[in-house]
Simulated scan of single mutants.
Amino acid sequence: MFLARFSYDVLPTDRQQAIEHIRREIAAAQASGLKARLLIPLTRGQHCAALQFEVELTNLDQLDQFRRRGVGSESETGEWMRSFSDILRSPPAVEILRTEE
């Protein structure tokens, strides 16, 4: 199994809005049959992500398929991406991890 983790850096004033964007991403993942979750660090170092989105994958092709499908129609996905980008302080950091069973 693989985990794809997206780390988002947002200002404290934009945190709730970012959580709503990530919840929409979680709903889209779940609608695609994937297990996804929002991670909210309780402690973090300077320059660390404020919020993280994590999705479980059985193979890496699922990540590409999920990212292409987006969070709705093509126009809805475009609007979601623009709106989310407006509050991000930097592009999301993406980690792909393999779980050891």
Rank of each mutant, 00 (worst) to 15 (best):
Phe6Asn: 12
His21Ile: 00
Arg67Ser: 15
Glu76Ala: 14
Glu100Gly: 03
Met1Gln: 10
Gly78Cys: 11
Gly72Ala: 12
Glu54Ile: 06
Leu60Ile: 05
Arg69Tyr: 04
Glu79Asp: 12
Ala31Ile: 04
Arg67Thr: 11
Thr99Leu: 15
Asn59Asp: 11
Ser75Tyr: 07
Ala29His: 04
Gln16Thr: 03
Phe6Leu: 14
Ile26Met: 04
Leu42Asn: 13
Pro91Asn: 09
Arg44Ile: 03
Leu3Met: 08
Val10Arg: 01
Arg98Lys: 14
Ala27Leu: 15
Glu54His: 00
Glu100Cys: 05
Asn59Phe: 00
Tyr8Arg: 01
Leu38Thr: 02
Cys48Gly: 12
Leu11Asp: 09
Pro12Arg: 06
Phe2Glu: 03
Trp80Glu: 09
Phe84Pro: 00
Gly70Glu: 00
Ala18Glu: 04
Ala93Asn: 13
Gly45Pro: 00
His21Glu: 02
Arg15Ile: 08
Leu51Asn: 05
Ser75His: 09
Gln17Trp: 01
Thr58Trp: 04
Glu20Ala: 13
Ile19Lys: 01
Leu3Thr: 08
Ile19Gln: 02
Arg24Phe: 09
Leu97Phe: 08
Thr77Gly: 10
Lys35Trp: 07
Pro92Gly: 07
Pro41Met: 09
Ser73Cys: 07
Arg24Lys: 14
Leu39Val: 08
Glu79Thr: 15
Gln62Thr: 00
Leu63Val: 07
Cys48Gln: 15
Asn59His: 09
Arg5Ser: 12
Leu57Val: 02
Arg67Asn: 14
Gly33Gln: 01
Leu51Gln: 07
Leu97Lys: 03
Ser7Ala: 14
Ile26Phe: 02
Phe2Asp: 02
Pro41Tyr: 11
Lys35Thr: 12
Gln16Leu: 09
Asp64His: 13
Ile26Thr: 01
Val10Glu: 02
Gly45Tyr: 06
Leu34His: 05
Phe2Ile: 01
Gly70Pro: 00
Gly72Asn: 10
Asp9Trp: 11
Glu20Asn: 13
Leu88Met: 15
Ala50Met: 10
Gln17Met: 06
Glu56Val: 01
Ser75Lys: 10
Glu74Pro: 07
Ile87Lys: 08
Leu39Tyr: 03
Arg69Cys: 06
Gln16Glu: 12
Ile19Glu: 02
Gly70Tyr: 00
Glu100Asn: 05
Met1Cys: 08
Gln17Leu: 10
Leu51Glu: 09
Glu100Tyr: 10
Ser7Lys: 07
Arg82Asp: 14
Ala49Gly: 03
Thr13Asp: 11
Thr43Val: 13
Ala49Asp: 05
Asp9Val: 15
Val10Lys: 03
Arg82Trp: 07
Ala31Arg: 08
Glu76His: 07
Ala36Glu: 06
Glu20Ser: 11
His47Thr: 06
Gly78Asn: 14
Met1His: 12
Ile19Asn: 00
Asp61Phe: 09
Asp61Thr: 06
Glu95Lys: 02
Arg82Ile: 10
Ala18Asn: 03
Arg67Ile: 08
Pro12Phe: 04
Ala31Trp: 04
Ser83Gly: 03
Gly33Leu: 02
Gln17Arg: 11
Ser32His: 13
